[in-house]
Structure formats: C-alpha cells, structure tokens
Design a protein around this nucleic acid. Structure first.
Length: 359
DNA sequence: GTCCCGCATACGTGTTTTAA
DNA sequence: TTAAAACACGTATGCGGGAC
C-alpha cells in the first residue's frame, strides 16, 4: 500500500484504490457480492484502506464498470473452439447462433486483460464506447450507474503516422493479448494470465513497492529473492528487464507469428541451440490428469488453463446470468472443492491445488 | 491479368529515467 | 516539457513470385 501523507492529510492514489477494489471483487463471489450499492463498496474500501473515499466515488464507479465490461469481440478467429475429444458435453449440441454457444471472451474464455490488476482510466473515446454498452451483474448495475454522467470532451484527433495515415489502437489483440505468466513471475505480479503490458506495469509496481531501484541510479533494479528467481541475477537494469521478462511470458494460443517462431525454434532445436526451450512446463496433479483424461503429467501452464476453460465452455458451465461465475459440475467440484467459482479465481485455484513446479 | 500466398517491414503500447 | 532509450510481438500493409 503506497498511501502517503501529503500536508498532514492521508493521500491515496487511484492505483491503490483500483488495486484494493480489484482484490475485493476478485475475492468476492460474483453472484453474492456482499454489497448492493456503490456506497456499500466505498464503505468496504474505506475500512480496508482506512481512508475517506467519498471524493473518489466516481473513480470507483468507473472502475467497477470496467471490471464487469464484456470484452470487445473483434477477431472471429478467436471464437474457434478446439474440441477436446476427452470432453463430452452434458447438453445437446446447440446451433452456433444459440446464446449459450456464443462465447463471451475472445480468448477461449480466459478472463479479459481488463479483468486483471490495475486498470488505468481508459481513453475518453473508449469510455464513450463503454458507456453505450454497460453489462453489470444486476445488483451492481444500478449501483454503478452514475446519475450524472461525466462530461465528455471532444475526442482528441488521433495521432497519425506520417507514413501510413492509420493507427491501430486498443482491442484484444496486439499488446493487449492475454499471456500466460510463469509460476516464478506469478509470485511477483500475482496473476497467472495477463497482457504483457499489464505484466510490465505490475512488475514496476512491485519494484516501487519493495524499493528495489538503486537510489544512485534508478535505472538499475536490485533483485530481491523473488526477482532473483525470475531474472536469475542479483542486479539488472530497466532495459534488460524486458528481455529477461520474456522468458516468463507464455503465449496462450498459437498465432501466425508464433507459428513462425515455433518453426524457427524447431530449427534451433535441430541445430542444437539452447534458446529454443523456454516455455515453462509444470507438473499437474493426478486428479487434474484424470480430469483431462490423460496420463501425461507435464504440460505448459497455458495449456492447463486452456483445457480447463475448454471444458467449461463445452459443458456450458458459465452462469448464463453472469459469465464471471462458473457453476461447477461434479467433475469440477471434485477438482476445486466448491460448487461455484469466480472465473478470475480459476488460475489461482489451479496453481494452488493442482500445479507443481517442475524441478 | 488477377488472385493468392509468404515474407518483410512499420506501427502501436507500456514502463522509467535522463538529457536536451 | 519532450524526446529518446530498450524491449516485447500481434497486426496491418506492401511487395514479389507462382499458379491459373
């Protein structure tokens, strides 16, 4: 917590509020949030942070709206569901146009990037789009609806590149694409899947929080025990950091370019290069192996998540009223030990109960 | 000549610090 | 105040070559 005193008054940053809110929403069952008004949430955060947040209600409201915002569905390719022969749907096959077979998330149902970590206020243009299609759980829908919408300034003219004249911003692809996080890096950023940009952001938050910058040269990062495991060095700099970080960021689905990289990697393997084998592999529990219907006990963490979500999708276990809530069937209950689980809690639950770091 | 495919290149976005 | 620094990689775009 980076609350600080400014002129004798406790000051809390938007980041702190967002993080506290994010943790609060993640800890809570989406179907039974312990509050049904914005004031209830604010009071909860006030007690948690020990501060008066009455002046931050608008910010909190916007963050909640973002939290429950369905991801934009831009890329039809992402809707393709690769059927796992081990999974047998409980229900009859629905036509593609049936509501239950329309996937809420473009990433095989993985929580959208915005579902993780700190979310800075989006650009005005994006806010305008979001305001036109709010989708909140019923208890919160009324709670976060602002009675006085924030004034919307004229959208700034987008920066145009001199050469192309077109800019591509936002969307679920590109740098906003969800990536898997290695177990070592998870200890730092706290999530199993995040966009690369969020990973970097969370990493810097961690560095600041733990005061890991060299006071004489703030570009230098002094690794503590957790960072030493990640970076495999005692000291690095901010420019090398991203390179080291790449070893711990796992692509969740193959793409054209990663396919090309895979081809290169294969060539490197064949030529004996050691740089090829960088995707962390975890050992899965026997229960999880049985759940997947495989004898294979080693697989990438991203593949584990993908298969679990595939099972959820195939068996239509998302709560139709709230896609953030997963209704566990008998097999999932056996796996997770609960009747329902938040979509956001699945990676953590898997990591805690069924994933072992490969030695 | 047109279409398709593969490859190369540019762009975008996030981070912090330093120098101009 | 602003640009530049390093780095990641998905996406869009342009170009060349082959097939029809």
């Amino acid at each position: 917590m980076s609350s600080e005193r400014g002129g004798g008054r406790m000051v809390v940053s938007d980041r702190d509020i967002a993080e506290a809110l994010d943790a609060l929403l993640r800890e809570s069952n989406p179907n039974s949030l312990p509050f049904n008004s914005i004031n209830g949430i604010v009071q909860h955060l006030e007690s948690k942070l020990g501060l008066n947040l009455s002046h931050k209600i608008d910010f909190i409201r916007s963050q909640i709206q973002l939290y429950f915002q369905p991801p934009p569905q831009h890329h039809k390719d992402h809707f393709t569901l690769h059927q796992n022969p081990n999974f047998h749907p409980h229900h009859h096959h629905h036509p593609v146009s049936a509501p239950h077979t329309q996937f809420h998330s473009p990433n095989f149902g993985f929580p959208h990037p915005q579902d993780y970590g700190f979310r800075p206020p989006p650009p005005l243009q994006q806010q305008q789009q979001q305001q036109t299609r709010p989708q909140l759980p019923p208890p919160l829908a009324a709670a976060v609806t602002s009675p006085t919408p924030a004034p919307v300034a004229a959208p700034e003219a987008p920066k145009e590149s001199a050469s192309s004249g077109k800019k591509r911003r936002g969307g679920p692809g590109g740098l906003n694409k969800l990536c898997g996080v290695s177990p070592e890096l998870q200890a730092v950023v706290g999530q199993a899947t995040m966009p690369r940009t969020e990973i970097v952001k969370q990493l810097w938050a961690y560095i600041r929080k733990n005061n890991l910058q060299d006071p004489n040269n703030k570009r230098k990062i002094i690794c503590n025990d957790e960072l030493r495991v990640v970076f495999e060095t005692d000291c690095t700099d901010m420019f090398k950091m991203n390179k080291l970080l790449a070893k711990h960021i796992i692509p969740l689905e193959p793409t054209k370019q990663t396919a090309q990289n895979a081809k290169k990697a294969k060539i490197e393997v064949e030529s004996g290069s050691e740089s090829a084998n960088t995707v962390p592999v975890v050992v899965i529990s026997e229960a999880l192996a049985n759940f997947f219907g495989t004898d294979e006990r080693e697989m990438s963490q991203a593949e584990v998540l993908r298969q679990v979500w595939e099972y959820i999708k195939v068996n239509q276990l998302e709560d139709p009223l709230n896609s953030m809530a997963i209704m566990c069937d008998a097999k999932l209950q056996e796996l997770f030990g609960c009747q329902s689980i938040s979509a956001l809690g699945i990676p953590e639950m898997l990591a805690r109960l069924h994933l072992l770091k490969k030695s």
